[in-house]
Design a protein around this nucleic acid. Structure first.
Lengths: 196, 196
DNA sequence: GGTTTTACATACCAATGGTATGTGGTGGGT
DNA sequence: ACCCACCACATACCATTGGTATGTAAAACC
């Protein structure tokens, strides 16, 4: 039986993450089977547990990649908007990206739904990979510096704004949709504008 | 071995729900063992599966009871506030109760964290037991009737307001707390007031 | 008072996440 | 060029899990 080189190992790992992401999205974390993931990749459990010591660690990897992707896109959007217009628009651009991710099925199932249950309260908040929180808080803090919102409300507002975006994403995923993406974004802007 | 009467069966069922609630809160749904719950009550699995066809059904019962308790308290507070002052204060009183529940450990773990993962998107939204959503939406709809918020934003705002309260509850439970309950109230009221 | 139904207990099952161990190939050191 | 440690898997196995099938004594009903 052909044993693989280090380069192949990296590919195996990537395949594993891709297969896991698919299973976690489609079946949910609990229903996603380690055996099924291995079958998808074409390896055995021994290989999987060689790359990831536990199912939770595999999930964490998938979770982190989604968060990093969201972070990158949000930062890029915010930076572009800031150079084109003003920092306030930049903040809204970041929120728009966040809202876009909150409507994605994989992001919903993995990050928003199973994430808290699998990683726990600690994992959710203590992890410095919770980039959504950091970005939103940075945005609100900037608004405070500009005098748009009160300084002492920054933390509380940031938490609530991020949660509002999460909930909006859920609402958009509901079938049949009682609200549209445009309506949500409109309402969100109205809410943020009211903070002045 | 003494077989129980129907009155004892009711007690067994209640004991089962109480033990399950404790386990679900302390261990989380996945880690909570059916065997442990049975051991707590002093019965066997046969009895448990006689009362609840599946672990999920047992969880649903615990989940529903929490939702009903929250609903009752929120309605009572809103009704009292409305008779004392105005409908706007009544809405805030209801939100205050919701926020209080969102800081409770059992409500967080069972309803907010494990709830979506166990019951799924369908169970979360399609269930007519999601009283939190219904109450918040009713409150916002009333504000719209009074001209405080735009009519076409009712649904979107309701979802975001409820999620904002959820997130605020989590933040308040975080150790060490980066925000206080008063600060959250203050920020929440400022956000809602801005909607006019 | 005999029959049905209720409220459990007992025994068992397939599947799960995880572990312990085996093994062939690869790469670095000399 | 050779050796050997290590890497990347495979194989075999395990305890525990949620769930089922069946048994059974007591209660409820006609």
């Amino acid at each position: 039986m052909a044993k693989r080189s280090r380069l192949d190992a990296k590919k195996t790992r990537e395949d594993l993450i891709a297969a896991a992401a698919k299973q976690f999205e489609q079946q949910g974390y609990a229903a996603a089977s380690i055996n099924d993931i291995c079958k998808d990749v074409g390896i055995t459990k021994g290989a999987l547990f060689h790359h990831f010591p536990t199912k939770r660690d595999l999930f964490l990897e998938v979770w982190t990649r989604l968060q990093v992707a969201m972070d990158a896109e949000a930062r890029a959007a915010a930076i572009e908007a800031r150079s084109l217009t003003d920092p306030y628009s930049a903040f809204l651009a970041g929120c728009r990206v966040y809202l876009k991710f909150a409507t994605r099925r994989d992001y919903q199932k993995i990050v928003l739904i199973d994430g808290p249950a699998v990683l726990g309260l600690q994992g959710w908040y203590e992890s410095d990979h919770d980039l959504g929180t950091q970005n939103v808080e940075a945005g609100v803090r900037y608004l405070a510096k500009k005098g748009i919102v009160a300084e002492h409300r920054v933390s509380a507002l940031a938490v609530m704004i991020q949660s509002a975006l999460n909930g909006a994403g859920f609402a958009l995923a509901r079938q049949p949709a009682s609200v549209t993406a445009d309506a949500v974004y409109d309402a969100f802007e109205a809410m943020v504008k009211g903070l002045r």
